[in-house]
């Protein structure tokens, strides 16, 4: 069980925050990460349309052999993505994502020096996220 990294994707599909906590995945250049985030944004939009039972909020987990990707979509369209090891239990990852969302509301949205939809550079958010991942 390990949390590899956290991404925050804004509602336009741009990667506004990326942080790696544990080694385990192939390292990405920042450009690659941007492209992947944009791709995930597109895939997510497609999965939201594919649901056979009416409206859907899109995919929540993508599983692979070596990692799992948990997605939390907020009401405003911001996506929080957590990359973990395959053994990471769903409930735990979900809890971490919800706490990160809370930290985002506190450390980013309440910070007057943050511009919405732009990359996140907030010390308060960094420390809060670090504490969450450490405690998970």
């Amino acid at each position: 069980m390990a949390i590899y990294s956290l991404w925050v994707i804004n509602k336009a599909g741009g990667l506004v925050y990326q942080r790696t906590f544990n080694e385990g995945l192939a390292p990405l250049t920042s450009n690659d990460a941007l492209v992947l985030a944009g791709t995930l944004h597109g895939i997510h939009a497609i999965t939201a349309r594919l649901s056979p039972t009416g409206s859907s909020s899109g995919c929540q987990v993508i599983e692979a052999e070596t990692f799992k990707m948990h997605v939390l979509l907020t009401a405003t369209g911001t996506k929080f993505v957590l990359l973990t090891s395959p053994a990471e239990p769903l409930t735990n990852a979900d809890l971490v994502l919800r706490r990160v969302y809370e930290a985002y509301a506190d450390g980013v949205m309440k910070n007057p020096f943050h511009t919405p939809e732009m990359p996140i550079r907030s010390e308060g958010f960094d420390t809060r996220v670090a504490a969450i991942v450490k405690g998970a």
Binding site: D106, G107, K110, N111, P112, F113, H114, S122, E123, G124
Partner: peptide, 14 residues
Amino acid sequence: RYISIPKEMSQLSC
């Protein structure tokens, strides 16, 4: 409590 001062404005105190 929720304000993070950017580095280039480090002297500022809200």
